[in-house]
Design a binder for these strands. Structure first.
Length: 401
RNA sequence: CGGCGUGUAGCGCAGCCUGGUAGCGCACUACUUUGGGGUAGUAGGGGUCGUCGGUUCAAAUCCGGUCACGCCGACCA
């Protein structure tokens, strides 16, 4: 990786982003237009997003389910605004098993239509409500202009779908999930967000009201990072989602839907990274630290690796997400550049001096204010005793978050 | 989908104007060297020049179609 440096943010923010995504091995283009391959360094971030958000959804009473990729085309046309909004970007399957299908199937651009069709079967009376469902899935929209993570034809997301007895209950749910997104952005993505309500022209196709969180990027642009929709009774009426109420009358249910996508990964990249490469909030980083052993000869190599392996095993056993970089064909300096580009929050250097003193050198990806200031023009280096390494990693993680 | 631009080894590029045996740097492989901020050397491997067609004795090079990517616009999580 002795390539040239990244284009700077100042020179061309957009080129900087594109280069960073590819060179930090987050994602790259697939042979199919608009689709991306998410590499482990990028998918690891998404996995951390999933794990943490999923817990928040469960804690607020939601359950996961899964609905199919293919939806009968006719379903898409049942809600007037919905069809108008999504028709231009649908991918349609017309053949299967070598024959033309009687009814074309669309690849889901979102799952309201299939999910509320199923909800209608599940609900008879008010005691069947609320239904609080989430699904983790891929969706497909035929986008004209795409960018890795920020807008791709196929993307990964979660979509929450709920059905409620009353309008006020649905509105409360819509706002509650907007709050979940805000909390997640602030606590896990370390990204300040602005919440607000979308104008009618930006509203989700078929929704009564759309709320959103907007994250502020380094180029002073806002990025829509998550949406929460109060769907009113629009879909309930279109898909015959009815129940017998407490007063004995038959009523339409009130729905909400809310989602965040792999765009969040793009948002994290743009919020924190610098001209050296990726910077990740430790809570969402696939790994928090990498161990780089340093030695000059076989004798040193043996002792250093033994010591480093012990530190590595100890950290692993205590639940830290750490990596060992024992590649022998690369100098330590080259590794430093590579891991800084890839955004690992801290690296742990272990050389003969450390073995002798039972210490390690911890170098955080970004300068930590509360620690001793780095020498001018140098990275901040923290000398840490092995016994206090775990605590130090915890402290630094919190400081970086 | 409209305008402009690009496509040659894994990555970055030269060659194209003026058609005639496909090159450079990095990366990769082997050995040696070096190792606390991108070590250095020697010897190697790897490309039907995005793709389809046309012109020509001959096409990376000229012409046309098409696909993909980038930027600007319209649309969008």
């Amino acid at each position: 990786m002795a390539d040239e440096k990244l284009t700077t943010r100042e020179a061309d923010f957009s080129a900087w982003y594109n280069e960073l995504v590819e060179r930090a091995q987050l994602a790259e283009h697939s042979p199919v237009r608009g689709c991306m391959v998410i590499r482990p360094n990028g998918y690891g971030i998404w996995e951390r997003i999933q794990q943490n958000l999923d817990k928040m959804f469960k804690d607020t009473g939601h359950e996961n389910a899964y609905f199919p990729l293919l939806i009968p085309q006719s379903f898409m046309t049942k809600e007037a605004e919905h069809v108008e909004g999504f028709a231009p970007e649908l991918a349609v399957v017309t053949h299967g098993g070598g024959k033309e299908l009687e009814e074309p199937l669309v690849i889901r651009p979102t799952s309201e239509t299939i999910i509320y069709t199923m909800f209608a079967k599940w609900v008879q009376g008010y005691r069947d409500l609320p239904i609080l469902i989430n699904q983790w899935a891929n969706v497909f929209r035929w986008e004209m202009r795409t960018r890795l993570f920020l807008r791709t034809a196929e993307f990964l997301w979660q979509e929450g779908h709920t059905a409620h007895e009353t309008e006020s209950e649905a509105e409360a749910e819509t706002l509650k999930m907007l709050g979940v997104y805000r909390t997640f952005a602030e606590e896990f993505m370390a990204t300040p967000v602005i919440t607000g309500r979308k104008t009618d022209s930006e509203r989700f196709a078929g929704a009564l009201r759309t709320y959103c969180i907007e994250a502020m990027m380094q180029d002073n642009k806002a990025l829509q990072a998550g949406t929460s929709h109060n769907l009113g009774q629009n879909f309930a009426k279109a898909f015959d989602l009815k129940f017998q109420g407490r007063d004995g009358t038959v009523q339409y249910a009130w729905n909400t839907s809310w989602g965040v996508s792999t765009r969040l990964v793009g948002s994290i990249i743009m919020t924190h990274s610098d001209d050296t490469g990726l910077v990740l909030p430790p809570r969402l980083a696939p790994n928090v630290a990498v161990i780089v052993p340093i030695y000059k000869n076989d004798e040193e190599k043996a002792t250093v690796l033994e010591f480093a392996d012990k530190v590595f095993a100890d950290l692993k056993s205590k639940g830290f997400r750490v990596k060992m970089d024992a590649r022998d064909n690369m100098s330590p300096g080259a590794k430093y550049y590579e891991w800084e580009l890839k955004g690992i929050p801290m690296r742990i250097e272990i050389g003969p001096k450390d073995v002798a003193g039972n210490t390690v050198v911890v170098v955080p990806r970004i300068t930590i204010e509360s620690e001793e200031a780095p020498k001018p023009g140098k990275k901040q280096k923290l000398f840490v005793g092995v016994d206090s390494l775990c605590d130090k990693i915890e402290d630094l993680s919190v400081a970086m978050q």
